[in-house]
């Protein structure tokens, strides 16, 4: 029965947010293409949004604050994706590759 009422406990949301953050960081280290790293970054954004909304729901006296903050995070993430993807396409035009290993001109 506690499993069915688990949406009333902040720990469930916090643990899921920690899981999203950990998976995002794992992907950020392991991925070898720029688009893959961007997707992992989006997972980290999702973890931050879930964390903020959890504290907004369970501890904040004003429930609009967290929602507006998360809305701003979504706007920032959309802007970031637009700029990052245009940079990725520009890089692909110049190098014919988006593998992070081949994007180096300085050797050392």
């Amino acid at each position: 029965m506690t499993l069915l009422r688990s949406y009333e406990q902040p720990a469930v949301f916090l643990i899921l947010a920690a899981f999203l953050l950990a998976v995002g960081i794992f992907g950020l280290i392991r991925r070898r293409t720029l688009v893959g790293m961007l997707i992992s970054g989006e997972l980290i954004f999702a973890a931050a949004m879930l964390n903020l909304m959890t504290f907004n729901r369970f501890t904040a006296p004003d429930p609009t604050t967290g929602q507006i903050f998360v809305l701003f995070i979504m706007g920032l993430a959309a802007a970031e994706v637009a700029v990052a993807l245009s940079i990725i396409i520009a890089v692909y035009r110049n190098y014919r590759s988006v593998k992070t290993k081949e994007l180096s001109e300085l050797t050392g």
Partner: peptide, 19 residues
């Protein structure tokens, strides 16, 4: 990579469950 993410997950789990 696995060690870093597992460490972050474990420590945040502890923090979230104890608070």
């Amino acid at each position: 990579a696995l060690a870093v993410s597992a460490l972050i997950f474990w420590s945040l789990w502890r923090l979230g469950a104890q608070g």
